[in-house]
C-alpha cells in the first residue's frame, strides 16, 4: 500500500484521480506518505487509501458467512461494484475496537450485596467463551470484593442473549 500511495502521488491514472483527488499527481510521495503515517490507524488507513488498482492486483474478494445459511456467498469481488465493500470489510478486520469484546460496567446494586453488573454488547451473535469468561469474572470479583454479574446483550436489538451465573469473590484479596 505504501508503494501504491507513492505511485498515486507521482504517477496517477485517471481512476486514481477520481478516487484520490487530494493526493493524485501531487508529487512529493514521501510527504504524502508521512501525512498518512501521522493521521491514521490501520483501520482508517485501509478505508482511506486501499486503491481499486491494488484490490485488482491482489484479487481481493469478500465472503459473506451467515451461520444460519447452508452456503457461503461471495458477495463482492474486485470490480466497480465491489471495491468499496471489499475495502470496508478488510478495514473492519483491523479495527481493534471490534476485535475486543465491548464489555462495560453498567450498574452497582447498592441496595443489596453490592453486586457489580456488567454488560457485554454482542456483535454478530458472538458470545464470550465460557471457559475464558468464568475465570476472568472470578478475578474481577476478587478485586471488587463482592459478587459480579455479566449479561450478554445483542448490540442491535438489546435482547438478552445470555445471563452468566453470578460469581462471588473466591478469596479475600484484601
Amino acid at each position: 500500500m505504501m508503494e501504491d500511495i507513492a505511485r498515486i502521488a507521482e504517477n496517477p491514472t485517471e481512476e486514481d484521480q477520481q478516487w484520490f483527488p487530494e493526493i493524485a499527481g501531487r508529487g512529493e510521495a514521501i510527504e504524502v506518505l508521512k501525512t498518512a503515517w501521522e493521521n491514521y490507524r490501520d483501520e482508517s488507513f485501509i478505508l482511506q487509501y486501499l486503491s481499486p488498482r491494488l484490490i485488482r492486483r491482489m484479487r481481493l474478494f469478500k465472503i459473506h458467512d451467515d451461520a444460519e445459511q447452508p452456503h457461503l456467498v461471495v458477495d463482492s469481488i474486485h470490480d466497480e461494484r465491489g471495491y468499496r465493500s471489499v475495502r470496508s470489510a478488510l478495514a473492519r478486520h483491523y479495527d481493534v475496537g471490534r476485535a475486543d469484546p465491548d464489555i462495560q460496567i453498567v450498574d452497582v446494586d447498592l441496595a443489596g450485596e453490592r453486586k457489580l453488573i456488567l454488560q457485554h454488547r454482542v456483535e454478530d451473535g458472538i458470545l464470550l467463551d465460557l471457559n475464558e469468561a468464568r475465570p476472568v469474572l472470578h478475578h474481577l470479583a476478587d478485586l471488587w470484593g463482592y459478587p459480579v454479574e455479566l449479561v450478554e446483550i445483542d448490540a442491535s436489538t438489546d435482547a438478552v442473549l445470555k445471563r452468566h451465573e453470578e460469581v462471588g469473590p473466591r478469596r479475600e484479596i484484601c
Binding site: M1, M2, L33, A36, W37, Y40, R41, D42, E43, F45, I46, Y94, V96
Partner: peptide, 11 residues
Amino acid sequence: QRQTKMMNEGA
C-alpha cells in the same frame, strides 16, 4: 501499537 501494526510495519 495494536491499532497500527500494519501501518507501522508498512512505514
